[in-house]
Simulated assay, not measured.
Amino acid sequence: MTNHNLKHDEQESEIHGKGYPFHITQEENQELRQKAASAIPSPVISQASSFDEYVQQLMIPPVVMDMARKAENMRLSPWEIAAMRKHLAPAKHHDKKIGLLRKILHKKAKADPSHPPYIRVACTGKSHYDYLAEADGHIHKPLHKKKGDVGSPVVLEIWPAQHYSPIHSHGETTGIVFCLAGQLDVMLYGSLDGNAEKLGLTTLTPGQCAWLSKDTYPVHRVFCPLDGGEGKTGPGFINSTEEFGASFHVYLNEDETPMMPHDEEEHHDDNEQHHSHSRNAFDFIKEEDSKKGTFKTHSDLSWHVLRRVLAETDLT
């Protein structure tokens, strides 16, 4: 998308009062937040403080509640957050050097300018841009330069301010989205479609958890509403601040969730399990033409690599 087209889209969006990424007015924003707040089952898992909230959360599947309880005390430490901010910061005027995380953002934006990029960190296995840590001198043992593993069940996602995901489905997995740092907005949709009904909008802060299953809230879009600096949020845009949100994701396939109801009939494609029914690939709506695409869930960094990079980062 050219800058001219981007500016035209932004102007059109402003005229109609419906900006990126959710394309809703302020009135619709309030209505959708009220819908999410009263939805049964609740799309957000938190400590119930009223009878209504208890009832809303009573309907959440036990396997989901178990995942949320195991994650409830997780947080990024202050030094990890500070190091991530340093690696997300834009280049200073007198110094064109940028950190590892912003390097990955630039590479991803160049490969796919349809939406602002975010970073997926696999908590197991290898990942696509691990080799950049070696190039920066953080890792001295030679690393692979091939695409990383697909389908990690546990992922850390780093969301630069004003960046967002496409509308996407998590197929038939069951999982949680647990906020670790910053702030994240999650829009829930009734189906995987560019014109799908919006079921509700909710904001996650550290310690709060959204969830999904194949039958409940499987389609959503995630957005970090923090200050992104100059420019408007939209396709091709990369922010100019170090602000970010972070979330911890767990996605379990059907055969890994014995407490969830399963279809009796297995899904097959040429005698093999169809990827979109597992965490190996998720379907999404393309920003440029609203058509459906499929994303193979390889990750950008491995957690063991990122944590070493963060630990070696000079915070002075």
Rank of each mutant, 00 (worst) to 15 (best):
M1V: 12
M1R: 08
T2F: 05
H4E: 12
H4F: 07
N5Y: 02
K7L: 12
H8G: 04
S13I: 00
I15T: 06
G17L: 07
G19I: 08
Y20A: 13
P21Q: 04
F22C: 07
I24L: 12
T25A: 03
T25N: 09
E28D: 14
E31W: 01
Q34G: 05
K35Q: 15
I40K: 14
P43A: 11
P43D: 13
I45K: 07
Q47V: 14
S50P: 04
F51G: 02
D52V: 06
E53H: 07
Q56F: 01
Q57C: 04
M59Y: 14
D66A: 14
A68S: 13
A68M: 04
A71M: 00
A71Q: 00
N73I: 01
L76Y: 01
E80A: 13
E80F: 00
I81L: 00
M84W: 00
L88K: 01
A91R: 04
K92A: 06
H93K: 10
D95T: 05
D95N: 15
K97I: 00
L101N: 01
I104H: 03
L105S: 04
A111M: 05
P113M: 05
H115V: 07
H115P: 01
Y118M: 04
I119N: 02
V121S: 10
C123Y: 06
T124P: 03
G125C: 03
G125I: 02
G125K: 05
K126W: 07
S127Y: 08
H128E: 15
D130L: 08
Y131W: 15
Y131P: 05
Y131D: 03
A133E: 09
A133R: 03
D136Y: 14
H140I: 11
K146N: 15
K147T: 05
V150R: 10
G151K: 00
P153C: 00
P153W: 01
P153F: 02
V154Q: 08
L156I: 10
I158Q: 02
I158F: 00
P160R: 05
A161H: 02
Q162H: 08
S165R: 05
S169I: 03
H170A: 03
T173N: 11
V177F: 14
C179D: 13
C179Y: 11
Q183K: 15
L184Q: 07
L188K: 05
L192W: 09
G194C: 11
G194A: 15
E197Q: 14
L199C: 07
T202F: 12
L204K: 12
G207N: 09
L212C: 13
V219N: 15
F223W: 11
F223G: 09
P225N: 13
G228F: 11
G231L: 11
G236F: 03
I238W: 07
S240K: 09
S240I: 00
T241N: 10
E243Q: 15
E243L: 01
F244H: 11
F244Y: 14
S247A: 13
L252S: 09
E256T: 01
P258S: 07
P258E: 06
M259G: 03
M260T: 02
H262I: 05
D263R: 14
D263Q: 14
E265H: 09
D269F: 15
E272Y: 13
E272H: 12
H277F: 08
D283Q: 11
F284S: 04
F284I: 01
F284C: 09
E287S: 11
E288C: 04
D289K: 04
S290K: 12
K292V: 10
G293L: 03
T297G: 13
H298T: 12
H298E: 04
D300S: 06
V305C: 06
A311R: 10
